[in-house]
Structures are given as structure tokens and as C-alpha cells.
Design a binder for these strands. Structure first.
Length: 295
DNA sequence: CCGCGGGCCTGAGAGC
DNA sequence: TGCTCTCAGGCCCGCG
């Protein structure tokens, strides 16, 4: 599921259930996530208050009263669900879905406010890791990440600088979390379409010239911010796995202009000869784009 | 250091 | 209906 808008949607859904509440009980049903959960995982979490639930790129970061930070990643198929201990609560509403997926419920947080927060991940590419807050800046998972695309510091000059000298396509550069952190295949395709830039263009072609970012870099940054904000407003994109914390679907997949639309007419090509969306493979990933609009 | 391809997993959907 | 094959939103690692 999860790129930045989906993770942010999950964060907003989980925050009311977790922030300010204690982890009364931590239940691990399967330790085999991306990396096996540490042996002291439950012990280190139990009794701690979640002081805040944040996000960095595609990672959720729960700040704990112990001074630890719980780092969580949804991988490809991870989701969280908020329910209520002892009663059906919101789960009953989505009973047919929850009963089907229950076998991949790997971790359950029982909060002191009565909420349960359940991590489900069929493919187990997701991960959880506890690190001391004081050591967070040295954490390998986070250390190499580029700027937050929705932050003020992420602008055309910064993107242009990061792309300068890159010996790869613009598509691959935007998927590189060191260049900008949080984009995945969907939003890279959609942002390039909005910016009318070809995914095949060399990344370095949006670089700084004479100390100024070129117009392409400006358009691309605008497009990235806009598509991410639109997607967050829609609760993310649900193709297969993404669910909001209350079990409901995101809506942004209905607003895709190019992603997963191979053969469909390009939404901006006007006139009798509508170009169709093309699918190509770049560095092993599908790219969807309009060869006429995107140069 | 960089860029690329393989691998990790399960499930959904297509084709036969 | 069921089998087999391909593909999927991510990221780490080893290779050249």
C-alpha cells in the first residue's frame, strides 16, 4: 500500500487512539516481519505512554515515555486497524474484511484507553524497531533519507541540486529516498504527469543552471507537493491493501491520471487523436505516462 | 560512491 | 473449478 499519503492517513487515524495513552499490553503473534522482532520488544513497550505519533517519509514514529522511539514501516501490504477491547466497536462494521485478514494480524497493541491497534501484513515486508530517541539521528533506517517533500525546505533549488550529476532517469531519481523521501511508484508517475515531464528524461536535466533551478524543477516540486496533498485529502490510494485505521478505503485511486491506466486515453490530450497512456518498465518497475504530454 | 538486479513474502487476477 | 503464471505500492544487499 503505502507511500507518504497512505502512511500519513494511517498516522492521522491512529493518533487519537494512541497519543496520550499507555501500551497496557503488547501482543505479538508473529515475530517474522522484515526483520524478526527483538526478544525484548514487548517488554520494552509495555507500560510506556505514547507521547506522540509522527511520520518521517514512509515511517511511523511513536515517541514513548521511556525515551524510546518505535519505528514502524508498512512495507508493501501492511495496515493498522483501530478497534475496541472486549467489544466489537468499529471492527464489526467491516466484519467480512477483518475476519478474512485476521490470520495476518501480527502485532496487537492494547491501549490503556480501551482501544486496540492491530498491525496486519500478509507479505510481512513491514517492520518494527525500537531505538533510543537520543540515537535516532544515527539510525540506519532514517539516516540516509532525503527531505520531506511537504516540508518548506523542499524546494526547486534543493531538488535540482539533488538531481545534479545523477546518472539515471528522472523516474528512478524520484524513487530514490535519498533524493526526496516518501514517494513511491504511484506518486512519482502522477507527479511527473502533472509536471508534464517525461519519466525517461535524465535526472540531471532538471539541475541548477547559473545558480538557479530551471523551470522544470519548479514545476516538478509544485506537482509533487500538489499530488501528495490531494492524495492525503482523499485518504490515500487503495489498490489492494491500503485501509484507513477505521477500515475504510482511501479514495485517491479514482483520481489517478496515468497510474495503472495503460491504454486509457490521456486526460489532457484534447482533440480527435487522443493519445493513450503507455506503460514501460524502468529499473524493474512499471512506469505509466503520456508520451505526448510529457517531454 | 553509484546504479542495477535479485530477493524477501503472500495474494489477486489472468489465461488455459 | 482449479491449476499455473505473472505481477504488486518497498527496501536491503551484493555485485560490477
Amino acid at each position: 500500500m503505502p507511500e507518504l499519503p497512505e502512511v500519513e492517513t494511517v498516522r492521522r487515524g491512529l493518533a487519537p487512539a494512541m497519543e496520550g495513552s499507555r501500551l497496557a499490553k503488547v501482543e505479538v503473534r508473529d515475530r517474522r516481519l522484515r526483520w524478526p522482532l527483538a526478544k525484548d520488544f514487548e517488554k520494552r513497550l509495555t507500560g510506556q505512554t505514547v507521547e506522540g505519533l509522527g511520520r518521517r517519509a514512509k515511517y511511523l514514529l511513536a515517541d514513548l515515555s521511556s525515551g524510546d522511539v518505535l519505528i514502524m514501516h508498512l512495507g508493501m501490504s501492511g495496515s493498522f486497524r483501530v478497534g475496541t477491547d472486549g467489544r466489537d466497536g468499529q471492527i464489526a462494521k467491516y466484519h467480512h474484511e477483518t475476519s478474512k485478514s485476521a490470520k495476518h494480524d501480527h502485532v496487537v497493541f492494547h491501549m490503556s484507553n480501551g482501544a486496540t491497534v492491530t498491525f496486519n501484513d500478509p507479505r510481512r515486508f513491514g517492520s518494527m524497531k525500537l531505538v533510543a530517541r537520543a540515537k535516532l539521528e544515527h539510525e540506519p533506517l532514517l539516516r540516509g533519507l532525503g527531505p520531506e517533500p511537504l516540508g518548506n525546505e523542499f524546494d526547486a533549488a534543493m531538488l535540482a541540486r539533488a538531481c545534479a550529476g545523477k546518472k539515471t532517469s528522472l523516474k528512478a531519481a524520484l524513487l530514490d529516498q535519498r533524493v526526496v523521501a516518501g514517494l513511491g511508484n504511484i506518486y512519482v508517475c502522477e507527479a511527473l504527469y502533472r509536471a508534464r515531464l517525461s519519466p525517461k528524461r535524465m535526472a540531471s536535466s532538471i539541475a541548477v543552471r547559473n545558480g538557479q533551478p530551471n523551470a522544470r524543477a519548479v514545476a516538478l516540486v509544485d506537482a509533487i507537493k500538489a499530488v501528495l496533498n490531494d492524495a492525503i485529502k482523499a485518504g490515500g490510494s487503495s489498490l489492494r491493501d491500503h485501509r484507513r485505521a477505521d477500515g475504510s478505503l482511501g479514495d485517491f485511486q479514482h483520481d489517478f491520471q496515468v497510474y495503472d491506466r495503460e491504454g486509457a486515453p490521456c486526460p489532457s490530450c484534447k482533440g480527435k487523436k487522443k493519445t493513450t497512456i503507455k506503460r514501460i518498465v524502468q529499473t524493474g518497475r512499471s512506469t505509466f505516462y503520456c508520451p505526448k504530454c510529457q517531454k
